[in-house]
Design a binder for these strands. Structure first.
Lengths: 132, 132, 132, 132
DNA sequence: GTGGTCTAGACCACG
DNA sequence: GTGGTCTAGACCACT
C-alpha cells in the first residue's frame, strides 16, 4: 500500500504517516477503512515493528486514525476533513516555495506556467495499483 | 545581519548559510564582500564560534564563499550565479508544494491568486536600507 | 581500515576522506557498503568522534557517501563514478608536478622512466587481503 | 617581479619564496643578484612588510639567500645548486601525482602523452616580462 | 586580529 | 545502537 524510500532522510515513521494520508487524499482509503496490522505492515515493508507502532501512535494522537484494542486501527477522518486539516501548512509551504522561486529570479510568467503544468497532471497514484 | 530562530528545527549553521545566501539574492551583499568574522558573528548572535565556523566551512566547500586564514571570509559568487545554482532545487520545492496544494483541494484559481500575491509583494530587503 | 598520520599537516578529517576514497578506488569498498560507525572508527583510530563526524559530513555533502541517522553511513558512488570525479584534479596535480620536475632539471627521459616505474607497480591494495 | 595570488590558500610568505626560487630556476635571477628590499617589495605587492620579512627570513635560514645588514639580501645559490636541492621533493610529488593518476583510471599511455605535452612546452616565464 | 583543527562532553532523534 | 547538533575551550598558522 505504501512506498518507503529507505534512502530518504525523512524518518520512516513520518513516511508512513504521510503515506496513509496521501492514500486518503487520493481516495484510495476512506473513513472507517481498516489499516493493516502493525505486524503485517512491518513484514510487508521489511521494517521494524516498533517504527510502525510509532507511526500508528502518532497518527492516533493526531486524530487521523483511531485504534480499538484487539480489533485494529481505522481511518477517523474523511477526505474533506483531512484536506481542511492539511490546507494551512500546505499553503505556508507553497508561499515559502513561491518566494524562493521569485528569489532565484524565476519570473511570474514562468512560475504560472509551472503551476499550470502541476494542475494539468491527472492525480497519479503510484502505490495504489500494485497491492490493493 | 542575520536572524536566528533558536526554536526552529533547522540547524543553526544551516540558518546561517541560507541567511547569507538570502542577503546575496536580495542584493545586500555582493561578490567579494567580506563576511563578518567568525568570532564577531558568534558574539552578535550569541552562538558558539564553532557553530559559525561550521557554517562558514560548509559555505566554502559549496563554493559560495571562500575563506583565507588570517584575512577573513568573502562572497565568491555574484547574485546571478547564486540564482542559477539555487534554481533547480527551488523549482523542485515549488512543484512539490504545488502538488500538495492540489492534493488538499486548493483549486487552480486559488493557487494562481496566491502566486500572484507572492509576486506582487515588493521584494522587501531588510538589510539594504541602512546600507553599510 | 584506514591509517592516520598524526604527524602530517593534512587534517585528520581529510585523511579519513581520502582514505575511504582510496579504499573505493582500490576496490576494497563498493557502492552501498556500510562505513564503520562514527563511534567505532573513533575508537579504532583513537580519535575524537567529532573529528570522524566532521569527515563523514564532508563526505556526505560531496556526495561520496550518504548517512542515514540511526542507520549508518554508506558509499554512494561506484568506483567508476569516483574515478571520473577525481580525474580532473588528478590531472592538474600531475601537470603541476611534471612542470616542477622539468623546472628542477629532470630530463624527459628520466621523467618517463619514473612514470613507467609507477605504472609497473602492481596496484597494492593493503586492505583487500584480509577481506572482512 | 613576483606574482601573488591573493585568493590562494598558499600562505603569501610561501608564494614569495617559491616565486624567487622560480625566478632563479628560470634563469631570471642569478647567484649574487640582489633582491628588492623588504619595504619596496611590500609596496610593490601591496602586502604587509612583516609578511615579506618573514619570507626573507625563511629563505635565509634555508640557505637560499643571504642578508647583509644594511646592504640587502642576495641570492646565495646558483641555478644548478637550487635544482639539486629541489629535486627530491619534486620527485616525490611527481610520484604521488602519478600514483593518483593511475588510481583514477588514467592509462599509462594517456599519462605518457600528458608528460610529453608538459615537456614540449617552452619554459614560459609569466612574470619576468613586465617588470624586469 | 583572522580562519582552522581538535578534544571533551552533552543532548537529541531515529531504529 | 546510529548519526546530528551544539557548547566549551584549547592550540595553531597566517597577516
Amino acid at each position: 500500500m505504501i512506498h518507503i524510500d529507505h534512502r530518504s532522510r525523512v524518518p520512516i515513521y513520518e513516511q508512513i504517516q504521510t503515506g496513509f494520508e496521501a492514500l486518503v487524499l487520493a481516495g484510495a482509503l476512506k473513513q472507517e477503512d481498516q489499516l493493516p496490522s502493525v505486524r503485517s505492515l512491518a513484514k510487508d515493508l521489511a521494517i521494524n515493528p516498533n517504527t510502525i507502532a510509532k507511526a500508528y501512535q502518532l497518527m492516533e494522537v493526531s486524530g487521523f486514525i483511531y485504534s480499538l484494542p484487539g480489533r485494529g486501527s481505522f481511518i477517523a477522518l474523511d477526505r474533506a476533513a483531512l484536506q481542511a486539516r492539511r490546507r494551512p501548512e500546505a499553503l505556508v509551504r507553497f508561499q515559502e516555495a513561491g518566494f524562493q522561486l521569485k528569489e532565484v529570479g524565476v519570473t511570474k510568467e514562468e512560475a504560472s506556467r509551472e503551476l499550470a503544468r502541476i494542475y494539468a497532471q491527472t492525480s497519479e497514484r503510484r502505490a495504489a495499483d500494485d497491492s490493493d
